[in-house]
């Protein structure tokens, strides 16, 4: 589904991603961990098409197409979804109106007519239930005045509504209370299928107990320095990142 090869990217002339290689297949869940500032959100931004990032090397194929060649909206229409680490507030635009527009655009791209008002309402109710999203928040302005946790849950609600084939969750667990974490994870698990895939960026092993990943990768200094199974997350929880940083440094020196 997603193949990243030797991806290099910079922002404001600063090299952030320094050769990322990653393959994600349908049905898989990949977790990406790593210290603050290592480039996790940057990777997500580059995949979603944020303009401030310049790709300097490498390629990304999504469903066989050149992802880097597409506009951000076309990437979304092709089935890519990014749950933002810091969701943006858009005053005056109602959440429901926004979702209606987004869904209609994505459907149009796929040659489908927009959902009828009734069907949309039905879908919205269904998904609200699935991720236990407060109906009042659906009618409010998009993220405006939402609490940190509410914003995160709104990202998951949008994810449920738009049904992407690849979802990247950037620290969706940060800021969620214990119950919310469980609800959101259960929601994600219900959305998992053999046809879609998830990339989950997190700092905490705890989330990975709920959403069990097939692979865990550690991103450090713009590179994936270690990959493993869910046991790697446990090891990190125990030992921290220092041993990996050390390894990475030694490796770099030997080159």
């Amino acid at each position: 589904m997603l193949i990243i090869k030797n991806l290099h990217a910079e922002v404001e002339e600063k090299q952030i991603l320094k050769g990322i290689n990653l393959e994600v297949k349908a049905g898989e869940v990949h977790a990406i961990m790593g210290p603050n500032g290592s480039g996790k959100s940057s990777l997500a931004s580059v995949l979603a098409g944020r303009e401030s990032y310049q790709v300097t090397q490498g390629e990304v194929k999504f469903h066989g197409k050149d992802l880097l060649d597409m506009s951000p909206e076309d990437r979304a229409r092709e089935g890519l979804f990014l749950a933002f680490q810091y969701p943006i507030e858009i005053p005056g635009v109602s959440n429901v109106n926004f979702l209606k527009t987004a869904l209609a655009e994505i459907r149009q791209y796929r040659g489908l007519p927009p959902l009828e008002a009734k069907e949309f309402l039905k879908l919205s109710r269904e998904k609200q239930k699935l991720v236990e999203f407060d109906a009042q928040l659906v009618n409010r302005s998009l993220n405006e005045g939402f609490s940190g946790g509410e914003k995160k849950r709104n990202e998951i609600f949008q994810l449920a509504m738009l049904e992407p084939s690849l979802a990247i969750l950037d620290e969706t667990d940060s800021g969620l209370d214990i119950d919310a974490l469980r609800i959101v994870s259960q929601g994600v698990n219900k959305l998992r299928s053999k046809d879609n895939a998830f990339i989950i960026i997190t700092h905490y092993q705890r989330l990975l107990e709920y959403i069990v990943p097939d692979f865990v990768h550690v991103l450090y200094n713009g590179r994936i320095v270690k990959s493993g199974t869910k046991d790697l997350a446990l090891e990190l929880e125990e030992k921290g990142y220092d041993w990996l940083k050390e390894e990475a440094r030694e490796k770099a020196e030997s080159i």
């Binding site: 944020r50 951000p72 229409r77 990014l82 987004a102």
Partner: peptide
């Protein structure tokens, strides 16, 4: 960009 990322 937030709206772009949702297909708009």
């Amino acid at each position: 960009f937030y709206l772009n990322a949702r297909g708009i």
